[in-house]
Design a protein around this nucleic acid. Structure first.
Length: 430
RNA sequence: GGAGAGGUGGCCGAGUGGUUUAAGGCGCGGCACUGGAAAUGCCGUAUAGAGUGCUCCUCUAUCGAGGGUUCGAAUCCCUCCCUCUCCGCCA
């Protein structure tokens, strides 16, 4: 959520930054409503002040022996009743304005950072760096896509997943399951060593949590919702982990907070029919190790670079070639001020495909989720900055390994970094 | 699912219609005392919004949430949420 005070104080700056995303976001209506709301608030609070005064007066008179039915008391009651009537007229108007403003604010995206490249869509994202050209497989156009290798080896099973659930689900069998589990453990171990505290959060989460991180109200159709409860299947551990601290005032000394979390993630993938219909790339349920940081505002830019490094370290350890893209304003996520995507080389696509997304949300989520911190000896509180990044998406990592590590004889080598987690170093047909 | 208890400041905890302007304690900060400290004493310690006031001040709101009664509600009434205990079910 954007700061209404800032919108009021520098409307041009805010509008210009929003325009870098798209012309669909306008602040003028919010400004008008806010102006009106503040007028009402002033008027109402003046009336209320007088009314409080009267009540006190009556209290004193009754204390000093006057009967509540006496003429003196009745007379002031009359004035108070009139004031109450006026307040009763103003209050619903003000409440209505407040909800309107709140709803409009919730539907505005974060301001892109000054350094975010301006662009229309993903074609204008900027490549920042590339790693692992030496590990690019030769004659990669001849390699099988991961779903074919996986089914051949008997470790990925898609057709029965349709029976059990529906399309866009998978069964991992034997070494498939073992590899998934090894990846989860490896990534967690790495990130814990890098200083993140592991959390295993609920993956059923309430509406308020989804609103806190920005998935609601705009993106309701992207998540699975429970019928009989105010609960949703978590689309990413970002939501439960960031919301751990919702409505809390942290002590400045607690910051920065670093968490990593392995969770399954659930996404409806509405609007992506026909895209990536095969394989592990776009499933309704997938596993992910997520990194979440809560930091002091002045640190968030450098913490952002660090989180990208932490995600990159996994790809490097697995010797998977990748590139780092900075998203342009048109492709930037709703809550992000700045975002880097890591894209891994996927021979079947002959392209780099997103495997991690690392965002700096600045105070956008913190305002929605009301996560603040307090400095000793300083009046008031400040919103923290929140960041997160995938470290990494497990299914897509598995896909990248199956494709990049396949051998001419149809077997798949297991990356060295995973050897401590598995009983074998090659996946063969079984 | 059934029955009961409860939700008050950073924390504990008192408070059944009007000096509650939320007692008291703990914690925290400052000062005094001290060679220094402990102990003790005194003072101060919430958040948010608004204001032609800007290191100060004024007003408003906030005792789980939302309504209601009343001149006046932490306190009375209604609805909802959450937590805990016991029973049932259950990995």
């Amino acid at each position: 959520m954007l700061d209404i005070k800032r919108i009021r104080q520098e409307p041009e700056v805010v509008q210009n930054l929003l325009n870098r995303r798209s012309s669909e976001y306008q602040i003028q209506e919010i400004l008008d409503l806010n102006e009106r709301q503040r007028q009402l608030e002033s008027a109402r609070s003046r009336l209320k002040a007088r009314s409080n005064e009267i009540s006190k007066e009556i209290g004193q008179k009754i204390q000093s022996g006057l009967s509540p039915e006496s003429e003196q008391v009745q007379k002031i009651k009359e004035e108070s009743n009139q004031i109450k009537q006026q307040i009763n007229e103003l209050e619903p108007q003000e409440r209505d304005l407040k909800t309107q403003i709140q709803n409009l604010l919730l539907s505005l995206p974060n301001l892109p950072s000054e350094s975010t490249p301006v662009g229309e869509d993903e074609t204008e994202n900027v490549e920042v760096r590339r790693w692992g050209d030496g590990y690019l497989p030769e004659n990669s156009e001849k390699l099988l896509p991961h779903w074919e290798i996986g089914e051949k080896l008997g470790i990925l099973e898609f057709s029965r997943a349709v029976k059990v659930a529906q399309s866009r689900f998978v069964n991992l069998i034997g070494m498939g399951a073992a590899l998934e589990r090894a990846l989860i453990r490896f990534m967690l171990d790495q990130q814990i060593a890098a200083g993140y505290l592991e959390v295993m959060p609920p993956v059923l989460i309430n509406s308020q949590s989804l609103t806190g991180t920005g998935q609601l109200p705009k993106f309701a159709e992207e998540s699975f919702q429970c019928n009989n409860d105010d609960l949703w299947l978590s689309p990413t551990a970002e939501v439960p982990v960031t919301n751990l601290y919702r409505d809390e005032v942290l002590d400045a000394s607690q910051l920065p907070i670093y968490h990593c979390a392995y969770t399954p993630c659930f996404r409806r993938e509405a609007g992506s029919y026909g895209k990536d219909t095969r394989g592990l790339i776009r499933l309704h349920q997938f596993n992910k190790v997520e990194l979440v940081k809560l930091v002091r505002p002045e640190k968030s830019a450098e913490e952002h670079e660090a989180i990208v490094q932490n995600a990159e370290a996994i790809l490097q350890a697995l010797k998977l070639p990748y590139r780092v893209m900075e998203l342009c304003t048109g492709d930037l996520g709703f809550g992000a001020a700045k975002c880097y995507d890591l894209e891994v080389w996927l021979p079947s696509s002959q392209a780099y495909r997103e495997i991690s997304s690392c965002s700096n949300f600045t105070d956008f989520q913190a305002r929605r989720a009301n996560i603040r911190f307090k400095q000793a000896n300083k009046k008031g509180t400040e919103f923290v900055h929140t960041l997160n990044g995938s470290g990494l998406a497990i299914g897509r990592t598995m896909a990248a390994i199956l494709e990049n590590y396949q051998q001419p004889d149809g077997t798949v080598n297991i990356p060295e970094a995973l050897h401590p987690y598995l009983k074998q170093t090659v996946i063969r047909e079984s």
